[in-house]
Every structure is written in structure tokens, then in C-alpha cells.
Amino acid sequence: MKRILLNRLLQAILMMWSVGTLTFILVRLLPGDMAYKIAAGRYGDDAVSTAAANAVSAELGLDKPAFQQYLHWLWDLLSLDLGNSLVSGAPIIVELQNQLSFTLVLAGCAIVVAALIAFPLGMFCGVKADSGWDRASLTMSTFVRSQPVFCLGLLLIFLFAMELNWFPVAGYGGAPYAILPVLTLAISLAAVSSRVVRNSTRTAVNSAWFEFSRIKGLSSRRAFVRHALPNILLPALAFMGIQLIGLIEGVIMIESLFAWPGIGHGLSHAVFARDIPMLQGTALVMGFLFVLINALVDVSYYLLDPRQQEVQS
């Protein structure tokens, strides 16, 4: 397991340098004068002007050669300083902590709720494969997945916020505010992961080893929990790991719809406003999360699957 973690640490360091460098190059390749875009982000549409753009350029040293700015950024990164936002002037680390905590709450809760929906539903459909329930679940999954997540969010708002008046429509400031965005994301995720669980369950319960475990006298529950469950968990876990990464990147729409102050919203604004330190900081954190989640999936694989431990040893 040490080797897994060491490999991932090296990957993380390489990733931080490459993601930061790539972001730096890509932002400079975007069309349009950066100083103007930053001025628009800072002062708003009505107040953006050449005078404001010139002031921004002078203040931020945007007229310096690109390699000088890059070396400056690299030095700051080595000293673990992510710089300040070009728009708000606040330290990136503070903005990221704030935004990331909101997104992680959203993504973490969504993945747990998605698992709570996907596993029971997927296992039920896997055991009852090709039944009416299974077909209904397939239809429902296809329907949910084919909707933009935005539509699903609006449907939930109509039902739970407007008709039933159970939860607030948007904003943040307590658990009730998180429920609708979490549920929207969770349902969208569960639509696919429930089918992965269903297929794994179907393969497991129809396998020769599962049949053997029943023949040797185990009860259906014991055979399921002892033999089928670990085999169902492995592919589902890998799939949900990938989903979680996609989820952190893809919450922009949900954060915008529910006015949730997360990193997706921050990232989209940083792109429009050419807030390079913010973009680099966000990309670094996301890249780091990617490596971290992969490491966690590897470790859980290692712990769940005895074959992995044999390979590693």
C-alpha cells in the first residue's frame, strides 16, 4: 500500500506543475486583451473602459514578458503561495477554502445519497433482472440521464420548493439549503451507477460460485453478503470514483441554479474574468483531488480485494 501512496504522491507533484503551466499557457492563448477582461470582471459591464484596463495592466504588471510572470508564479508555488485574485484581491487560498468546502459538501453528500439510491435499487434490479421492475428502472434511468441536470433541478424545485414548500429554492446557510442541490446531483448520478450495480449484481447472482455457495448450504442473505456483495462493490466503487471527479468538475450548472457558492461557480467566473491565479489555484486543487480520489479508490480496492494484496506483495 505504501507503494500505491508514494506513486500517487509523485503523480500529484507532477500534476501540480503541469496543470499550473498548462493553465498559464492556455489562458494566454485565449483571444482578447487580458487587462480588459480583468477590468470587466472587477468593475462590471457598465464601468469597463480603456482607462480601467490600463490601470489593471499597470497594477498587475501584465505588460511584463510572459516568462517573467511564469517564473514568478512558479517561485510562488514552490513557496506554497497561490497569490491573490486579480478580481477581488483576496488571497486565492482563502477563496479556495471557502468555495471548495461548499463544493465538497455538495459532492460528498451527493455521492453518499447516490450510493443510497443506486445500491439498493441496482441490487434489486440485478436480482430481478429482466423483470418489470428492472425494465421500469432502465426506462427511468434513461429518462433521468437524458435530461440536462439543470432540468432535473428545476423539476425538484417545482415539486419540493413550490408545491410542497419543504425546502428553500436557492441559497445557502444551513442543511435545508443543501437538500435540493444534493438530491438533484444524486438522482442524476444514481441513474447511471444503479445500472452498473445492477449489471454487477446480475453477473454475481448468476455465477457458478454464487450457485455453489447456495448449494453448500448458505442462506440467500449470507451468500449475498459474503460472496456477491464484494464482487458487486468493486466495479461500482471504481465507477463512483470516476463519477465523483466528474461531479466536482460538473457542478457549475447546479451551483448556478441553486446559487450555491462552490468552486464550479468560482471557476466559470475566473475564466470569464481571466483571473489567472484563481484559475491556476482551482485547476491545481481539482487536479490534486483527482489524484487523491484515485488513490482512495486504489486503497479501497486493496482493502476489499484480497487478490490486489497478493499482487502488491
Binding site: Y36, S49, A53
Partner: peptide, 11 residues
């Protein structure tokens, strides 16, 4: 475009 394209394009 971004709103800044107007002052930028003017200048």
C-alpha cells in the same frame, strides 16, 4: 463577446 470587447474594439 465579453463586454470589454466594446471599449477594447473602440480603442
Amino acid at each position: 463577446e465579453n463586454s470589454s470587447a466594446i471599449p477594447s474594439g473602440h480603442t
